[in-house]
Amino acid sequence: MILRLWRGETAPDRTEPYRRLLTEEIAPAILDRGVPGLRELGVWGRDPRELDPAAAGETLTVMTFDDWAAVAAFTGGDPSASVVPPAARRLLSRFDQHSRHYQRLATFPPPR
């Protein structure tokens, strides 16, 4: 399994519009593509108390894929490529040009 992480930052006044765009349009459009091997897409927001109030809002997308072929199918070829639609680029002040990927090494369920 492959974990794909991508991070974007927005000016404070653009954080909520960006997050709405991401959760209401971009993420559903990705899922509607039916990418084989895409297991999950999550959207995470960094707690504003951890950020400089004047700096930015930080949003992380977390995707899990079965394998590298599935990641390449999502990106259109280059597995490390960032996939950022023009509407999102207009709201973002900074974003990862390349996603980070991690392969699962082990899983430990909590004791019952």
Rank of each mutant, 00 (worst) to 15 (best):
G8W: 00
A73Y: 01
L105C: 06
R100M: 05
P86Q: 09
E16T: 11
A27E: 14
V83W: 00
G42C: 12
P85I: 07
D96M: 05
R20I: 12
W44P: 01
P48I: 06
A55R: 12
A11C: 03
A81R: 03
G77Q: 11
L91T: 03
R46F: 09
L5K: 03
E16I: 05
V43Y: 04
E25S: 12
D32V: 06
P109R: 02
D52M: 00
R4Q: 05
R46S: 10
S80F: 12
I2S: 03
S82T: 03
P36S: 08
Y102A: 09
A106K: 11
L92A: 08
A106E: 08
R20S: 08
E16L: 10
T75V: 12
R20Y: 05
R89L: 14
Y18K: 01
R46M: 13
D96Y: 01
R94K: 13
Y18R: 01
R33H: 11
P111F: 05
P85T: 04
H101L: 15
A106S: 11
S82Q: 06
T59K: 08
E40A: 15
E25A: 12
A69G: 14
G42M: 11
P12L: 06
W6I: 01
P12G: 07
E50W: 11
I30V: 15
T59W: 13
Y102V: 04
L60A: 02
G34T: 04
S80L: 13
D66L: 09
R89F: 13
T23C: 14
R49V: 05
T10G: 05
V71C: 07
T15M: 14
L105M: 10
D52E: 01
P53I: 07
P111Y: 04
L5H: 03
F108K: 13
I2C: 04
P28I: 00
G76R: 03
M63F: 05
A81G: 02
P111A: 14
W44N: 07
L41S: 02
V35P: 00
D67I: 09
R104E: 14
Y18Q: 00
L22K: 01
W68K: 04
D47I: 06
E50P: 02
D52R: 00
R19M: 15
M63A: 15
P79G: 09
A29N: 14
D66K: 06
T10F: 03
L31H: 09
R33G: 10
P85Y: 07
T75I: 12
V71S: 04
P12K: 10
E40H: 12
A73V: 00
D32T: 07
A54R: 09
E40Y: 10
P48L: 14
R90Q: 15
S80E: 12
A73R: 04
L91Y: 10
P86A: 13
G42W: 11
R89Y: 13
E25V: 14
Q97R: 14
I30P: 04
A73H: 00
